[in-house]
């Protein structure tokens, strides 16, 4: 084959590849485009709208009695769970990382394995029955505790890895100066593993934010339900989706998570200043 022919074939192959990649990108980008454009469309529907602009859909959203409040509920649930998960998993991981217990790793793995069952679908009925007997249905604190329990094993597992990387001499140094275990945790260990704690916090928020099943089962009062559950009520009597509500609400629903990620990444991003000279 002559040299130009080879070059031409290569060029064709390249063009073909780019077209393919372009199509794949459009395929994946379409939902996002829908998410940002439809809320502002005059006639929102399944389709990505033709260019037009209105804020009328947000008016409809504002007038809905549950929509905005549900975002607040989601924030409370996600924030509460994130705080509890970070505090409990952090202290547990610190202890697990520092105390020599026989069979420690086996315990960790067992807990991790069981956790997928605890908040998984399998345990839904027992959890519901238990909370029902305790008269804790519609209690947000109870839901936060259940959600936290589900996240703890993985969070402990990840944080223990972070804690393991903190040189012991940091803590021993503080101990010799008279710091108590809690002072050491607050002054030294927590700041050093801050990126890990931030990761767990964001992860917990994201998990709770998207969780439908647990709040759906454990919270029956629409005034307490989070956004993920309320979304399913935006249908009119004929079972038709209310696109004005759904599109604006979807946008509102995604903003806090994105913000949370950006803020945390900016403030606590993955930095580690070494104080150990090798």
């Amino acid at each position: 084959m002559s040299a130009p022919a080879v070059l031409a074939r290569r060029a064709m192959a390249r063009v073909g590849l780019y077209v393919f990649v372009g199509l794949v990108l459009v395929f994946f980008a379409l939902p996002l485009v829908w998410l940002v454009t439809t809320p502002f469309a005059r006639t929102p529907s399944y389709r990505v709208p033709a260019p037009s602009f209105t804020l009328h859909n947000f008016r409809i959203l504002w007038d809905n009695p549950y929509a905005v409040r549900s975002i607040g509920n989601s924030l409370v649930l996600a924030g509460g769970t994130a705080v509890l998960a970070v505090v409990f998993a952090g202290t547990a991981a610190y202890a697990l990382s520092r105390v020599r217990l026989p069979g420690r790793d086996a315990v960790l793995y067992a807990v991790l394995l069981l956790s997928s069952i605890v908040t998984g679908t399998a345990a839904m009925v027992p959890i519901f029955l238990m909370l029902f007997q305790l008269d804790l249905i519609d209690n947000r604190l109870a839901l936060v505790l259940v959600l936290t329990g589900g996240l703890l094993p993985s969070a402990m597992f990840i944080l223990k890895d972070f804690m393991d990387t903190v040189p012991r001499s940091y803590e021993e140094s503080a101990r010799v100066f008279g710091a108590s275990p809690f002072q050491i945790l607050r002054h030294v260990v927590a700041p050093v593993v801050r990126p890990g704690l931030a990761t767990i916090a964001v992860w917990a928020v994201v998990q709770v934010w998207g969780n439908f099943l647990l709040p759906y089962i454990l919270l029956h009062d629409p005034a307490k339900q989070p956004a993920a559950v309320i979304m399913y009520t935006f249908y009119d009597e004929g079972g038709q989706p209310n696109f004005a509500l759904i599109s604006t609400f979807s946008l509102l629903y995604s903003v806090p998570v994105v913000l949370c990620y950006l803020v945390v990444n900016r403030r606590y991003g993955f930095r580690f200043q070494g104080g150990i000279k090798g």
């Binding site: 001499s169 021993e172 101990r175 100066f177 002054h187 580690f272 150990i276």
Partner: peptide
């Protein structure tokens, strides 16, 4: 250790990486 009233300098110095020099020195 904290009740013995000694100060130790470790081989790796064990300076706290997230604190400034000032805060490190002031830590005790």
């Amino acid at each position: 250790p904290g009740q013995r009233d000694v100060a130790m300098v470790f081989q790796d110095y064990a300076l706290f990486p997230h604190m400034t020099v000032l805060d490190n020195i002031a830590y005790p």
